[in-house]
Design a binder for these strands. Sequence first.
DNA 1: CAATAGCCCTGGTGGC
DNA 2: TGCCACCAGGGCTATT
Length: 274
Amino acid sequence: MPELPEVEIIKRSLVDKLKTRQIINTKIDLPRLIKWPNLTKFQSMVVGRSIIDMTRHGKYLLITLDNGNLIVFHLRMTGRLRYINSGVSDDPYTRIVFQLDNGAILVYADTRTLGTVYALLPGETWRISGLSTMGPEPLSAEFTIAYLTNLLAKSRGKIKSFLLNQKYIGGLGNIYADECLALAKIYPERIGVSLTTEDITSLYGAINQVIADGIRDGGTTFRDYRDGNGEKGHHQDHLLVYGRKGKPCYTCNTLIQKIEVGGRGTHFCPQCQK
DNA sequence: CAATAGCCCTGGTGGC
DNA sequence: TGCCACCAGGGCTATT
């Protein structure tokens, strides 16, 4: 499932190829993925425009067009964006194709079709609440120990759920949230306000470290994730707990457990994480 | 504010 | 081998 590191790698692998390209046509096989506006308006806002830039905000990907309009993607669970020189997609789950002026295509493919796509006028990002209410991202200047401390002082829910809430921190998903808590040695069901100064310092460092490592390794490929060139990531080879239920902890050899927290599968070491 | 359930959706998997 | 219930889970909504 693409989280911040995966979406960042997709952006990096696509941005230079897309810049200055003109979108000459679209082929939309699954119109319900377009959440705003309707199919006809979406096409009219996109076709004929040139791409100025591609950026990422949390797990959202944004393409800026030459008139200031935005194409916004959220890949959810199984969304993929890929640039294909030949102009022909071999992905059986291709849902949207953007035909470019050099004969290449930008393909949006999505197995489970939970992804979302929008076209926005300049200044319309408020239409996507998840985008406009998103908290600071790991590794950003706004994400500080003081910020985290202030929020946790008011947080009466479980720390795992806190980390997944995009209003607090933008970009963490289920895999990296579990990894953050493992690295910080914090039990996922701890209540936010119960975290000590030491815990918070450790967690803050772990969040930045885990996200940086994920990016360094080109993202985590469990099944579906690929970058913009169709390449897998490597961070699945460096996970401490996610997907390791029943396997020994690298620190203490205790078997990793999996529980449900806030409706999400949650992996942790019962010995190391307190 | 927090927890929970339901919804969207398809493919892989485990059990029998 | 075939069938089927179940699970994966991000983000949103409704309810308690």
